[in-house]
């Protein structure tokens, strides 16, 4: 067992526990977008930053990838953490302002301004879908492609993957397209934010038998006509 101190509370956890899990155990909320139980920690969204150490040696680390260490002093809501987290949310909001999940986060953490150019990206590259596909579905149908600005997630050559079983797990875990996935529950879709989303499947008719959570098809794309797939 390893004993550490989180926000002034001493806690003993098993070796190999991450700071995120330890904080959750104590009931300290840490927001995260790229972490999911059952999937390898990835540390992509940076939302789960916490401050460790003391004085000049204090630093910010992602709690989802940082293993608990003996005697470690962790602060999950220090000023520095709050500032960093707010900035991350602001940046996420700029890249995918249409995401209900990110909007909710922004509201919760009182991000009231958004100083960066809006991008309306469909993806924040959190890698949840890639890990879901590989680790839980054992399919490896989608992955990261390119690098830097051109980094994206998709199937090789943008063609329908032979190994994809159309399980829809990737869409289920996606924090950006959550709304698309819940649209067939009308009470959860009253904000209408989905009208900003362009359906990624529309210009890819190769995905003929794509399994989409939306009904009717392309309900996420109000202005364009449905593409004829799925239930009409």
């Amino acid at each position: 067992m390893i004993s550490l101190n989180i926000n002034g509370l001493d806690v003993s956890v098993e070796e190999g526990t991450t700071l995120l899990e330890a904080a959750k155990f104590l009931g300290f909320p840490i927001p995260t977008l790229c972490h999911m139980e059952g999937l390898e920690p990835y540390g992509a969204c940076r939302l789960c930053v916490v401050e460790i150490g003391e004085g000049a040696g204090a630093k910010l680390v992602t709690s989802c990838t940082y293993p608990a260490q003996e005697g470690l002093k962790v602060r999950t809501t220090s000023k520095r953490v709050a500032k960093a987290r707010k900035m991350i949310i602001e940046l996420l909001l700029a890249s995918s302002p249409q995401s209900k999940t990110i909007q909710d986060l922004a509201a919760k953490y009182e991000v009231k301004q958004q100083r960066f150019r809006q991008e309306f990206e469909d993806c924040i590259l959190c890698g949840l879908c890639v890990r879901m596909c590989e680790e839980q579905m054992v399919a490896k149908a989608i992955g990261f492609r390119g690098r830097g600005q051109e980094r994206s997630i998709g199937t090789p050559f943008d063609k329908k993957s032979d190994v994809c079983r159309l399980c829809g797990g990737c869409m289920f875990v996606c924090p950006v397209c959550t709304l698309r996935c819940t649209y067939n529950e009308p009470d959860k879709a009253i904000c209408g934010a989905c009208s900003n989303i362009s359906a990624p499947c529309l210009d890819k008719d190769k995905f003929d038998d794509m399994m989409c959570y939306l009904d009717p098809c392309a309900a996420c794309e109000i202005e364009k006509q449905p593409c004829g797939k799925g239930g009409k």
Binding site: K140, I142, G143, R145, G146, R147, P156, F157, V163
Partner: peptide, 22 residues
């Protein structure tokens, strides 16, 4: 060729494509 590499060496196409585009 990349598809053949995938089947011959047992490396998934996603990984090959990721490296090739990186």
């Amino acid at each position: 060729e990349l598809r053949q590499v995938s089947t011959e060496y047992g490396i998934s196409l996603v990984d090959i494509y990721g490296v090739a585009t990186f």
